[in-house]
Design a protein around this nucleic acid. Sequence first.
DNA 1: GAAAGTCAAGAGCGGTGCTCTCGATTTTGA
DNA 2: TCAAAATCGAGAGCACCGCTCTTGACTTTC
Lengths: 234, 234
Amino acid sequence: MVTPSLRARVRAGMIEEIKAVARRHLATDGADLSLRAVARDLGMVSSAIYRYFPSRDDLLTALILEAYDALGDAVETADADADVDDLRGRWFAACRAARTWALAHPAEYALLYGSPVPGYAAPDDTVAPAQRPPMTLLGILRDGVTSGRLATPDEVLPEPLRGDVAELVDQTAVALPPALMARGMAGWTQLFGLISFELFGRINRALPHRDEYFDHQIGLMADLLGLPGPRLRC
Amino acid sequence: MVTPSLRARVRAGMIEEIKAVARRHLATDGADLSLRAVARDLGMVSSAIYRYFPSRDDLLTALILEAYDALGDAVETADADADVDDLRGRWFAACRAARTWALAHPAEYALLYGSPVPGYAAPDDTVAPAQRPPMTLLGILRDGVTSGRLATPDEVLPEPLRGDVAELVDQTAVALPPALMARGMAGWTQLFGLISFELFGRINRALPHRDEYFDHQIGLMADLLGLPGPRLRC
DNA sequence: GAAAGTCAAGAGCGGTGCTCTCGATTTTGA
DNA sequence: TCAAAATCGAGAGCACCGCTCTTGACTTTC
């Protein structure tokens, strides 16, 4: 193993330091990250940042990648920590983990799932990490199908759509009946919508018990998915 | 009736012209609206814009208000044009109208439902227009309840949540059983999530038939709401 | 020990939102 | 009617932004 040179180690530390300060600025000042402000905080001149990141967008991309991975880690470990046979419990754990991470890192969540920055185009590196949370949810459904505890919904997709969803099933390599795949995507969409509404302030201030509201709405989707466990209907 | 002075009429026309140019810039260049660019297009100097809008945020607010009203009009007329007794048809019409408007005005949709601009705080004027689309959806459910064609879901909300939702029912003045209200909010959340994913995300690259996908997902929520009509289950 | 590579700093370019002043024009009211 | 008041566009200027280029000092490599 080759030990990196002193300069390489200092450089790696500098990159991490820049990202840390940038992340802090993101959390306090919002999404419009200022390179010059980051440089000021580091006691540098703005042009020095360009030794480590070729442009502001590249720094943003690095932060986005880290955020995707942090969210993916949170969701995956929450799923893994739950009882593997408790499908409903795993669904709730994964969804709650996503929400908890988003509430703790609102600016980074906005970076991932907010409106795209006008001039910015996410590189292909971000595709795989971005799919980790929905993949985790689909994995729960797949486990339910393979273990026979999750029934296939009885609706049939109309033909042009059925082919699309079947292709998506192939691409994601998560074998699911198309109808269940569509319901799973509905669950993922609902999770994103719930978090976004709560975070971007569109949710009504008249809902003080947000944890309970979130759980209830997630439970509705769990029912729709047919996840076994204590249903909402009492 | 007092005829406004020439100067007042010119001023009103100028305000409209600035908004029109700004809206065009929004559509082409994205959300980061440049006052100077708008002024250039109008053959003015940037400082002249401040005679009509005290700040860039105020111009943005005016555009946001117009966008909310345009979306609200689209959704409400789509609902009104449908057969008043066809609850499921009205739900579909309203949701499709929202999506159609969003696809036709992506930048304005992003302005309304994207991540909030860091320094910008939406004034209270925007609250009422912002609630028109979800209110339309809830109105469909209310009509179903009052006409007896829409059954109350059989789940019971746990207590802290039930009070919140009941208060929300009071505030919105749309009399709905709390459980149905919660399901209606799920439908609204799903609609927002579907449109946002299609507009912002990369989830649908493998879904060429987006109309059919949207209709199917909306149909899932219509089933969840118990809207009478041809269900998805074939 | 010289050549090559890397670094921070500074100046500068064109862009942004915004403020202020200054004449010119229009509206108002005695 | 005619002067005072209000409104207007233009311009200069401030502080900030992302980014580029050059310069001189430093470190690594051969």
